[in-house]
Structures are given as C-alpha cells and as structure tokens.
Design a protein around this nucleic acid. Sequence first.
DNA 1: CTGAAAGCGCTAACAT
DNA 2: ATGTTAGCGCTTTCAG
Lengths: 363, 363
Amino acid sequence: MTEQNGNVTMEQVAKLAGVSIGTVDRVIHNRTGVSEKTKEKVYAIIEQIGYKTNIYASVLSRKKSYCIIAVIPYFQIGSYWELVYNGITRAAREAREFNTEIKIFYYNQFDIESYRAACKNMVDARPDAVCIAPIYKDETIRFLNRLAPLTIPIIYIDTKLDGTDYLAYYGMPMFESGYLAADLLVGNDTSVKKVVSFNIDGGVSSPNDSFLKRHIGFQAYISEHNPGCEVLNCSISPVDFMQDIKICDAFFEEHPDIGHIVTFNSRAHLIADWIELRNVKNKKFIGYDMLKLNMDALRKGFITTLIAERTDNEAYTATISLLNYLIFNEKPARQDNFSSLDILTRYNVDFYVNVNTDKNTRR
Amino acid sequence: MTEQNGNVTMEQVAKLAGVSIGTVDRVIHNRTGVSEKTKEKVYAIIEQIGYKTNIYASVLSRKKSYCIIAVIPYFQIGSYWELVYNGITRAAREAREFNTEIKIFYYNQFDIESYRAACKNMVDARPDAVCIAPIYKDETIRFLNRLAPLTIPIIYIDTKLDGTDYLAYYGMPMFESGYLAADLLVGNDTSVKKVVSFNIDGGVSSPNDSFLKRHIGFQAYISEHNPGCEVLNCSISPVDFMQDIKICDAFFEEHPDIGHIVTFNSRAHLIADWIELRNVKNKKFIGYDMLKLNMDALRKGFITTLIAERTDNEAYTATISLLNYLIFNEKPARQDNFSSLDILTRYNVDFYVNVNTDKNTRR
DNA sequence: CTGAAAGCGCTAACAT
DNA sequence: ATGTTAGCGCTTTCAG
C-alpha cells in the first residue's frame, strides 16, 4: 500500500494555459462563451500533458440527470420478452447512481396501433436516449425521424433497421441461428426426409420477420447439404394448450414418420409439453432461447438442443451502452453487435443458469 | 433532464444513528475502535434506509493503494495460458484507476521448483490479494498458510483446492466437460467401438489433474451410455511437430478403424494439423478451448466441435472480483464459479470471436 | 467572455 | 471510542 501519485488534473491544465479551471471545463464540454484563442490554447495544453477527465470526480459533481426510454413488447411471465425486461431493469438499477432514469414503454407486438401509441408517448416524453425493439419498420422510421433533429442516440435490440441512423444494435444473428439449427438437427444425414417446424400463430401474422429469417437460414442449410429433405410447417397457438395438443396429435397421426422437429420461436416448451404428455420417444427436437420452461424440458430430455443468446445480458449491455454514451460520450466498439449462438443440451444446461445475472463488472 | 434527487448518503445514516459520519465510515469498513452497540445501530440504519456507498465519492477521496498478485504459468503465444494472461491484463488496466496495481508472477508448470520460487516471491512482495492457478497442491497450501495470518483474500483460477480457505474459484467444470464431450462425440451410437484420446506429454507427468478429471468424466459417460466402446490413449509432444505427425501416422496405421478423436488438453490444433496434412476425412474430432488455432481448425473442418469456457473473461472476472473485494468489500455471489460449457462448431464459431474482449461494464 | 467559489459524498488524518 | 475537518477533481452557479 503506497501513496497515490498525482494524476494530471484540470487545475494543472488551467495553470499552464493561464486560465481558470472554469474555462477549462467550458472548452472540454464544448460549452459556449470561450474565445477561439483560449480554446485552442487549452486544447494544446490538454494534448501536451495528456489530461484525461477523472470520471469519479465528474460523476460526483454532476447535477444533470438523464432519461432513457426503452420501448419493448409487454410480455407474459416466463416469455422471451421477460428476459429482455430483466436485462433492462438490471441496467436501470445501475443507471440510478448516474442520475439517469430508465423508463420502459410497452406495446402489444401484434397491434400496430399499440406500437404507435408507445412510440408517441416515447417522443412526447423527450428522452435523452432510446432503446427500442423496432418490430414495425415503417412506423419506427416515422417516429425516429421526429427525434432526428434532436440527435438523440438510438439503440436497436432484437431487430435492426438498416439504412437508419442508430448508435448500435444488439441481437442474435437470425439467419445463422437457423442455419446452425439445421446442422444440429439433420446435418447431412440423408436418411432424414422430412422435418417439421412448429410456428406460433398469434391470430394475426407477426409483423416481425426475425423468425422468418431463421426459417430461411434453416432452409438454406437444408438446400445446400440435404436437398432431399423437406421442411413442413404447422401452426400452433401460444395460448390454447388443449388446442395445441390436438394439433400435434393430428399432425403426427398424419406424419408418423417425422422424427425431427424445430421451433423457430421461443416457445419450444409448448411442443415439449406434448412430447411429455404423449410419452413420445426418439424424436429429435431443437428450439431457441433460455426460457426457464425450455431449459427444464431440455433437462428432462423432451428438447434435444436449444440455441440461445444470453438475452438478459444482451438487453443489459444494450442499455448500458446508452448510459456510457450519455455519461462518458463513449460509443460502443461496434455498431452491430451479434450475440453468440450458445448450444445447450441436457449435459451443459446447468452451467448456463447464472450466465445472465452474474455481474462481470466492477462493483 | 431533470434535477438530481437525493440519494441516501452517509450523512443521513450518521444523523439517524446519532453518530458522526466518521463513525459510519468506520463501521462500513470494519475499522477498529467502534463499540458493538453503535456498530449494530449503524448497521440497522444502513439496512433500514438502504444505504449504498457512492463509489465515485469513495474512489475520489481514497488515498490508499493496493497490490494484487497473480501467479500463473508462463506461456507460449497462442496457448491457453495466454488467454488467462489477457484476462488478467485487461483487469489490470481497469484496476489502475482504482489505485491498485496487479503484478503477475510466472512459473514453469512442469517444474515444482519454479512454482516454489514464484510463490516465495509472491509472499515476499506482501500482496493485498492473490489470484493463483494452484497447480501444485501441497506447495500451494504451504505458502498460503504463510499468508493466512494476514487474512489476505485468495482466488483460485483453473484449479481449486478444496478444504482450503479461499474467497472464490473460477474455472471450468472439468468432469462435466469430459462427460459432455463423450455425449457429443459418440453419444449412444453403439457402432462406435473405439475412441482415441491424444494426451500431451510434457516430458514429465503433469502435476495438474484437471485433464484427468476430464478424462474420467468422458469415461463415465461411455461406461453409462456406451459400455462397448473403448477409449485408447496416445501421447504426443507439445513442441515436436514432426514427431507428432509420425506418432499420428503410426497410431492410425495400427488403428485405421478409429473414427473418433478427442483431446482433453487445449492443443487440439496439433492433431488438426495432422488431419490437414494427411487430408484425412470422416473423422469426428472434439477438443477444448478457444485458442485461435483451434478456432481456425474448426472453421476449416479439421476439428468437429470445441468445448470451451470464455477463458479470457473468466480470468478477468476472477481478478476484478478481487478488486471489488478490496475496494468495495464485496464478496462474489458464489464461492465456486463454474464457467459455461460453450459448444462451438464451424457454424457458430464466428460469433465467439469478440466474446472475451467485449466489455460488459459501465465505461 | 472569464474567474471564483460552493459543493458532490466519502476518506483519513487529526482531535477530543 | 467517537467527532471534526480538509481535501479528492470536477461541475455549476454567481459575479464580474
């Protein structure tokens, strides 16, 4: 334990530049009311002696506070969007000590009007930064244009809108996640002639083409490696359990030979329920996302493999990167941040349970 | 942007507890010279109003500095221990702004004398905390006993020593990583009659039983699921490339029927080199760890699957948790922290390249 | 346009 | 055993 040595401070900069620390502060933060001449002089000194602002002093003395708004679908407990919610909430707790509040505005992902309302509320609330799951593309662009003149940083999660101006994107590589699923499910086993994909039918067609991209990735692999294999589709309901059982019964009565199942959405556990109920054996079944119900089904062997990002953490990181931008003026290392594609089986699933909540941060 | 509201401060705690802030500071930091009675009172108030120390004020005013020593094997570029080194170094950079220095002491993992020397130097340097890869069990216990009276926090990485006193352990679940490998490599395919495991022979038998645990896990799976399958062993050198080629040639000349390979150490790429050189097809090959050479071999198809932890990040987290303990008196959430067992194939490997270096932290 | 000064909440040395 | 106080380096208000 030795004594601290002196870092370069604003005071030293001020002294060398022959101005007060108030002026140094003004030039550092691009505030108005400094002559070009002194501005240049101060910059020169800063460069010369390598001054870096001390974030601890900065945060401590800062009075300004920020408001970040997240716009996401509302969700049922145990669903994919709850994981996103958890991540944002975790970030919100940390943001508080930076005097920044994170508000979440929810919408119904199957109702464009609801999305519009959430966006309108968001714009009206005059946020300093926005984190949004932009499921409706055109609507999003319209609202973000209203924000554009304010140069507010935008982060996309889950889905990204190419061609728009955004600070960063965090999400899973959907095409590749489908491609990977095909490799794990059928590979180049040409004895597999048919595969079934169970899709959620929300009553209306989902505005989100994420699952479609996954489907396309899956099909791409099949076409390249196993062109003799056919991918059938079957729709189930996210809410009507009894109905789903009947649908599965009917489907497999008609196709008793199909031994390979995939779900491109996060509700693999719905099919797992049928597998458990009917005591079905010898079907290979791959699904997505670390929902608790999915992980349970994986442990019990009703799901063979899960492909998953660390959703909670992705949402957390996305939100925190907004905070870093506001407070430290620091941009994410990359604009597009693709999650890893973790492969979970019954033999490694237990080592993923804390993966999201464990902090990997100072403090 | 609204005005800041009041967080709970030490001053409020002091007022409510009827003491001065100096006393509150004393109890928070377990300093001497506070009566049990006031200590309890202060704790009660802290609990009640939910006081959390403001790290910015804390860091800003702190004058003390710390020294953390890490003791690890030295390494060749591109090897497993380089990943560990990277993680520690990354933590060291962050530690600097907390006035704590992280020194790394190296040893030759195949030379117990070298380990002794590193440990002696470590003890002599009087560190405030230690992060160690305790490859030699008895030696480690001897040295740590010398440290014990000082109640210095110890963190184990890679290997842990049960029955000793340690703040935390970070590492891969070795048995399970072997068990998983067996499932991925042979599963219950009873047509697989033989598997070969290539082991590194360092000239002396490794003091480290990590790989042995992996081997045992692998064998356990085979015994349970595929008892007709035999696991052969073959030794290669970590340094003599030409020799390794000959060994592989000879082995597969003798066992042309073996189509399943595993390496329990991190040098899968050595065998991958042979596979590439001899243009070998149709062998399933599983290895460990995200070494660049392994990932390259995976991309090219010479390795089928890699099982890996995020080594860099594990080392980083281990070191940072020591920092958190010293600076914030905060213990890790769990004592034993097992890494996830990430399964990498050529189809998801690209989404793991930034997994280690990406920061998931504020700032 | 620029300077002076009062904090931000905590630490640590110095008093009592 | 406890209280008091001078900073830590920066932000922000208030004066010029």
